[in-house]
């Protein structure tokens, strides 16, 4: 096995993991703080991708499209929280599963009505459409480096916000003990709305920036959703740190699984999860 080839796979795995983290961090926070199992979280990923594709077509610029899609995804998230999710806080987890399942159906159909059934792609902007040459035959696309950079930067920002700011303190308090948030006199409604909107925006951003390297297609949200659930559960529900580790683990397992055991590639991710949970039934950080 070539060292460079291995390195490239490693980079791919890390990049995929970082992207998953962007989506999964919102999912784990929404569960940890609000106690909501949000099956519709993957829909925000899809929304981000479709918005980016649509806006890139209108504006002719991927950067503009990504920047514009971010507040739009956040807005949709906020509205959904205020209209529907809010009624579920006192309900059983199963009601949440059912309602957000209904939301998936609506999101998928809305996507079909607005943007059709076709699979789309966004052309790589020429400015970043080149590769870093590693050896005679191997090179690494620079866009993937940028993508990883954006995700890593956001992970750092998230860490700083959660660890150092007042808002972050509320988030930490909420994730460890939900009742405490209300007892501390924090505006719970606002906190929940913001967390949900930020989660939606992060997932949307992940969808938007991944458009040049993966296709924009119906059902793309479902695949990501399941993987992110795997990530969240491996990491320990509610733990952002756990989600990061879980995302790396799944990103690498998926990438290397496809390289080393192509016949059982899809098996590896679920195998890793089953193994982790049999070892630690409540995830790595719970």
């Amino acid at each position: 096995m070539d060292v460079w080839f291995f390195l490239i796979q490693l980079l791919n795995g890390v990049q995929y993991g970082l992207l998953l983290f962007l989506v999964a961090s919102g999912l784990t926070l929404i569960f940890g703080i609000m106690g909501i199992i949000n099956l519709a979280h993957g829909a925000f990923y899809m929304l981000g991708a479709y918005l980016a594709w649509w806006l890139a077509g209108l504006t002719g610029s991927l950067v503009a499209a990504v920047v514009l899609s971010l507040p739009l995804a956040a807005l949709v998230g906020y509205v959904i929280e205020a209209l529907l999710v809010r009624t579920l806080y006192k309900r059983d987890h199963l009601d949440q599963v059912l309602l957000t399942y209904g939301l998936i159906l609506i999101f998928n159909e809305a996507q079909r009505i607005l943007w059709g059934n076709d699979v789309h792609g966004i052309a790589m902007p020429t400015a970043v459409n080149w590769s870093v040459r590693l050896t005679e035959t191997l090179s690494y696309p620079v866009y993937r480096v940028i993508l990883s950079g954006i995700c890593a930067a956001l992970a750092v920002v998230m860490y700083v916000v959660i660890a150092k700011t007042r808002f972050g303190m509320w988030v930490r308090a909420g994730a460890s003990n939900r009742d405490m948030v209300a007892a501390l006199g924090i505006n719970v409604k606002l906190l929940f709305g913001v967390v949900f909107a930020v989660g939606a925006a992060l997932a949307g951003l992940a969808g938007a920036i991944s458009t040049p390297i993966s296709s924009v297609a119906p059902g793309m949200g479902d695949t990501v959703l399941i993987l992110c659930f795997v990530v969240v559960v491996i990491g320990g529900v509610g733990s952002v740190k756990g989600a990061f580790l879980g995302a790396m683990l799944i990103g690498l397992a998926d990438t290397f699984g496809k390289v080393f055991v192509p016949d059982f590639a899809s098996f590896t991710v679920y195998g890793v999860m089953a193994a982790v949970l049999l070892w630690k039934p409540r995830g790595l950080f719970a």
Binding site: G102, L105, I106, E109
Partner: peptide, 8 residues
Amino acid sequence: LLPMGAMV
């Protein structure tokens, strides 16, 4: 899917 989701 739209009325289906709404019904659920």
